[in-house]
Amino acid sequence: MNEQQNMLSDMANGVFAELRDTPAAEAWARIEALGLPSLLIREADGGFGGSWQDALVVFRLAGHHALSTPLVEAILAAGAGTHLGFAGRGTIASRSEGRLENGRFTGTLAGVVAGPRADFVVAPLGDRSVVVDLSQARFVEETHFSGASRTVIGIDGARAAASELRIFALGAFARSAQIAGALDAALVMAVHYVNERWQFGKTLAKFQAVQQNLATFACEAAAANCAAMGAAQALDRGDGAFEVAAAKLRANQAAGIGTAIAHQAHGAIGFTHEFGLHPLTRRLWSWRSEFGGDAYWANLLGAGILARGADHFWADLAARTD
């Protein structure tokens, strides 16, 4: 990490830890006062002008602390919407259906994060995005997946603009980074737990089966973190299409293996509402599907590679970093 990223990391670590037990409105005010939502807004537009590697630092920590405040979504939305004239609190959606005509959008947005509290939303439209004003939105329905609440929103001719950004892929990148952070946090919890818990006259950590499972977990967490880093680097180079797909797919798999081992190591206590493991693992299960599950990205990657054929595979891969 560079100097700036170290500072960002210290700040985010501090504030995210404090916000764990802070009411939502207050938490948002704290985060806004620190300027965090403007991380990806260009300097010319009064933002921080951060890189994707800067964003990785914050997204990863948001995952690590199981942050409830929808900051990650606000950062992505502000990066896409500010220079198009959308102000206030932004968020993102994972799906949209409808039409954008003459600066107006009519249709539905689904999988909107913290919709009722947002001023505008950035949603995928075709393979790009649409930014939609939410001041006159109709909240149609609330959906839930593994503890994560999302909204479906009906839009009838609201102010909107097309964005060149691919918000679906950027959402996938963000979720990869959050998965990486949450896996590291769950790993720390599991290691701590097995070092404290005694059975058969010794700590669980002394059992080789337990050690080997947690080593497997550590490998998966490492893979997710390296994949997220690789994707951030590629986005900063200007084209992360392949890397984001690969990173999300790899992170998804790590989420599956990591959550299973984390719960196994914790025994029954980890299955309780009171114990702090589920804020991580339930988010991990939701993030695994959001912005592209395993099959989605595997199909996309596979189709691209098959179309290029065996003789190009390695050369293409290497050329992406040269």
Partner: peptide
């Protein structure tokens, strides 16, 4: 197709 995608993601990582 999915196997190819999965293996490629692993290999890239």
């Amino acid at each position: 197709r999915q196997l190819v995608g999965r293996l490629a993601a692993d290999m890239w990582t």
